[in-house]
Simulated assay, not measured.
Amino acid sequence: MRHSSCFARWFGSAAVAALLATGLGGCQTARSPDVTGSLGTRAASSPGLSDAHGAIEALGERYRANPRNAEAGLRYGQALRADGRREQAVAVLEQASIANPGNKQLLAAYGRALAENGSFKQAFDILSRAHTPANPDWRILSVQGTTLDQMGKHGEARRYYSSALKIVPDEPSVLSNLGMSYVLSKELRKAEATLRRAYARGGSDVRVRQNLALAIGLQGRMAEAEALVTANVSPDEAAANVASLRQMIGNGRQTAGRPSEPRTSAVAAPSRT
């Protein structure tokens, strides 16, 4: 089994893309800005892929027949995001948002697409319009936190995670993003403690377990980290996971303590809404 040479394809959050961009790795792919971590990449020959492409084209035809239809624009944009057509998704969702000003569902999808495409400042601004202080959405608050982490504004990002956690205490996805924020600032003990909280409440989410393994491995406890990433997977997948983990940890150690400028051009990969 051929494994990915880039750990970002495994730990696929926006926060991890920032981690890689600030010196702990060499690849800049990421998945969802909503939730930290993601295993594997979408295979080019996945079963049913042609059917999925056909469904996307049908959604596109419906959208082009009436570009001002909010639902058509939203569904087409989300399908493009899921298929990895990031720039096209941004364009569709931007036009749909312009045609339907004030539609918060469209703004939320547009902001996520911008974040996945590396436009973090613009994503943050658009997401700010997708909810209000009087009626905040914890998912959007968490995504805003990851965009701030991408820009190197870790303290500000954590205030957004804190606000999200006031709405949904101990939500594993938010705790996972917060934990990865601490990884970005190399506060590894805080990262581990936070990710253990996420794991205790969301242990069924493999991405949370993988992020915890990263925080543990960066502290030099490789046996413990490898035990986490090899649990409940096939031998081939376990070997690939360990190889990727070791590469990521090795890159992190080589750049430890080296100052770096946060970059805002990390490329995001397909994600769920």
Rank of each mutant, 00 (worst) to 15 (best):
K121C: 02
D149F: 08
L74D: 03
L148Y: 01
G202H: 10
I216P: 01
H154F: 15
V242H: 07
Y63K: 00
G77S: 09
A70M: 09
L245Y: 11
Y161Q: 09
G118H: 01
A43L: 13
R75H: 14
A70L: 13
G252S: 06
A198G: 00
L188Q: 00
L214M: 10
Q219C: 10
L107F: 03
R139I: 08
L93S: 08
A30F: 14
G77P: 06
A18K: 05
S162G: 10
G12S: 10
A191V: 09
R207Q: 14
Q88N: 04
G40T: 00
W138N: 14
A240I: 04
G179H: 09
L245S: 07
A240K: 02
P67A: 08
A193S: 07
N177C: 09
Y160H: 10
Y161W: 12
A213C: 06
L107W: 04
S204M: 06
P235G: 15
L74W: 13
Q122N: 13
S50G: 08
S4N: 13
S163Q: 14
N135F: 13
P33G: 08
G111M: 07
E224Y: 05
E156Q: 15
P262H: 08
A8D: 07
G257A: 07
N103L: 05
A82L: 06
K166T: 02
A164W: 05
A14C: 11
A99L: 08
P235F: 12
T29K: 07
Y161G: 01
R112K: 14
R159W: 08
